[in-house]
Computed example of a mutant assay.
Amino acid sequence: RIGELFEETNGYVYINLQLASYINDILTFLFAFCCFFGTIKLIRLCRFNQRLNLFIQTLQYAGKELISFAMMFSIVFISFICLFYLLFVSKLDACSTLLKTSQMLFEMSLMKFDAHELSGAAPFLGPFCLSLFIILVVFVCISMFITIISDSFRRARKNINNDQEIFSYMLNKFQRWTGLKKANEEERYALIRLEYFDPIEGFPERVDQLLDAINRLYMTQISERSRMEKDEF
């Protein structure tokens, strides 16, 4: 429609492209999320790898606990954002906006923040708030997060499946079938043992089959003799 309108007016009319731009932005956002989730789904294809499988199972075991921890951590982190923003909004450029304050607190949690700025802005409140943040967020919350991951990792190691062994077995079979890999001495010995047939081991079964055949023959003769005697009478 835009092309037809442009052709009819030879480009001398105003064309509003706001709706088209809005739709294009929405499609770009949807495409970005589709690419993100599609790439994440590739992890499932790597589940035969033992380490990736262990990583996936660890996240599955820790899912509910991590959600609860994330809610608690968000409340604590937002409360510190409000605290630092209201105390140092007029004294520090790093606390001039909520976004900059959250960035500063994130740097504090990584121990990459210069504490001298807080001390210069407020000799008492600066170190006090910094110490409170380090104790509650870095020591307590991060320790809780590591504990949740460690416990889930321990449970995942106990309940890990044997997909890796199945995949290795299938891969080795395919490589030997195509001739890309030759069997070693132990594998050849195992194959020979499977293919080798010892006549002595099958002797009892053969004897049982012979006795069964003799028994059937004997019973058949008895039944025929009984039938012949009935016919004579």
Rank of each mutant, 00 (worst) to 15 (best):
S96G: 08
C82F: 09
S90T: 13
E65V: 03
I81K: 14
K91L: 07
M72L: 10
L99D: 10
E65Y: 04
A94N: 05
S79R: 14
T97E: 02
E65C: 03
S74I: 06
T97Q: 04
S96T: 12
K64R: 07
L83C: 09
K64A: 12
M104W: 10
S68W: 02
T97H: 05
K100T: 12
L105Q: 05
F88K: 05
K64Y: 06
S79Q: 09
M71H: 12
C82L: 10
D93R: 10
K91R: 12
S102T: 05
I81H: 05
L105K: 12
F77R: 14
T97F: 04
L98W: 06
T97I: 03
L99E: 15
K64S: 06
G63F: 14
I75K: 14
M104P: 01
C82Y: 03
S79L: 10
A94Q: 14
F69E: 05
G63W: 15
M71L: 13
G63S: 12
L92R: 11
A94M: 05
L87W: 01
I75Y: 12
F106H: 12
F69M: 08
L86M: 14
S68E: 02
F88P: 04
F77V: 02
E65G: 00
V76Y: 09
C82D: 02
E107V: 02
L99Y: 08
C95Q: 04
V89H: 13
C95W: 00
L83A: 11
S68K: 07
F88L: 06
G63E: 15
F80L: 04
G63P: 00
V89D: 11
C95D: 01
T97K: 03
S102M: 14
